[in-house]
Design a binder for these strands. Structure first.
Lengths: 240, 240
DNA sequence: TCGAGTATTATTGTATACAGAAATACGATG
DNA sequence: CATCGTATTTCTGTATACAATAATACTCGA
């Protein structure tokens, strides 16, 4: 039987629809389109030089990703992320990253483990140099490896979704160096627990890692700036 | 600021696309379209008396829901659920339903609590009568209330997705009456913990509720029938 | 001046037409 | 008879045309 297990992210990057989808997602995540902004099919289409058809299809996908909301016969609006959403996501991620680490302890391959070690090593280097961009990228990659390593496409998919979602909040403004190092230290601990085959510890550490990231985010001003629950978040400093 | 919080399930049931989407989802979940079966746009369109446009848009949504997989320039294929997927989902749900119950303990409204009590009461009645259809419906509704009650649209959304996903497996073949009653008993315990404001207990009970449902599913033959990991699941008896 | 009702416009929803890719059938050639 | 290449067919991908709906502007009367 054929293996239909194409990498999820592929999403047809060579079709117009795929490109529109990716472009819009990026623009929403990067903040080009503000919360509650209306996206008009023709306008987007003209901007990207395509007709409404691929735009509409991309819209349907973005809606399911939770990035926009389509009101029938009215329009498509960029969904807002509230402070509470972010909090909820970190709660959920805390549990699921824990589970992921637990599963990864059993399933991780030698290659994945090696890439993890390398990732942590590299991150240390960049931390010492203050290269925040690379830090962020390595951080993302670390979690990605973990997601792959758990060997559960369901869990992987969910975690990726959430991870991507909160990246909206992290945006350009990267975390401060202090959290960057602490985060990397936590990565190392998680890695070592996995390496040692201690699933319980790995789970617990991954769990805390998320909660720490959230705490840090809160301390760094998310709540001070956008205090009220209903307020929308524009950016933050949380380092996961 | 307008409240865009439309009910998630609405999905535009009065547009052609919405109807196509729902119909296809139902047909996939009910097993009318088998795993790996190819869905052709024109065929579906003709069957439902609509053009390809709404069908295509529905396809894009179904893909994101994970029910079909679209291969560019080739076609749309019904995705398979492996036994491992089901297992993973129950693991994930166990954690998240626990969290959901915990949150609900704080946030549940009087109306929701009342509906829950009514639900359990009714389910008891139908259990005694052997009305399996109603039991299944009430079971779904119980979890739905819980999802609403946690007051977290992120969590609610994720749980609904998973819930729907495993319903594919449950399909027509409903659980045996024994599990139905046990399940309802567990619902009652969860409800009572929530009512008593005991979040820890509610979490723990909801947690176990999922694991029990999974165990029951396994005992009822899921693994005996479709023993190998890679095998696709057609149906089962798990009662969540 | 205000408001109800209506015309107008803008935008989404759907159907269809056309283009391009993939699968299949077919036939020439060795 | 096998096989490669090419026509044919069947699909999906995209653009456009048309219909329906919602928002807006306008007119007329009180």
């Amino acid at each position: 039987m054929a293996n239909y297990d194409i990498k999820h992210e592929v999403n047809d990057k060579y079709s117009l629809r795929g490109r529109v989808f990716q472009k819009l997602r990026e623009d929403i995540l990067s903040g080009k389109y503000k919360e509650h902004e209306e996206l008009k099919e023709v306008a987007i289409g003209e901007e990207l030089g395509v007709s409404r058809t691929p735009v509409r299809e991309a819209f349907r996908q973005l809606e399911l990703e939770g990035l926009i909301q389509i009101v029938p016969n009215k329009g498509a609006y960029v969904t807002g992320i509230t402070v509470k959403d972010v909090k909820d996501i970190y709660m959920i991620r805390s549990l699921l990253e824990g589970l992921c680490a637990r599963l990864a302890t059993e399933k991780i391959t030698k290659e994945q483990l090696e890439e993890m070690e390398e990732n942590i090593y590299l991150a240390e280097f960049h931390a010492s140099k203050g290269h925040m961009d690379q830090m962020a990228e390595l951080d993302n990659r670390f979690h990605d490896i973990l997601y792959e390593a758990c060997d559960s496409k369901m869990l992987e998919h969910t975690l990726r979704d959430y991870h991507q979602y909160v990246m909206r909040v992290r945006q350009k403004t990267l975390s401060n160096n202090t959290r960057g190092r602490a985060s990397n230290d936590e990565h190392r601990q998680i890695m070592e627990a996995i390496k040692a085959g201690d699933a319980d510890k790995a789970e617990q550490l991954a769990n805390r890692h998320m909660l720490n990231a959230y705490d840090n985010m809160v301390r760094n001003g998310l709540y001070e700036i956008y205090g009220e629950e209903e307020r929308q978040v524009d950016s933050d400093d949380g380092k996961n």
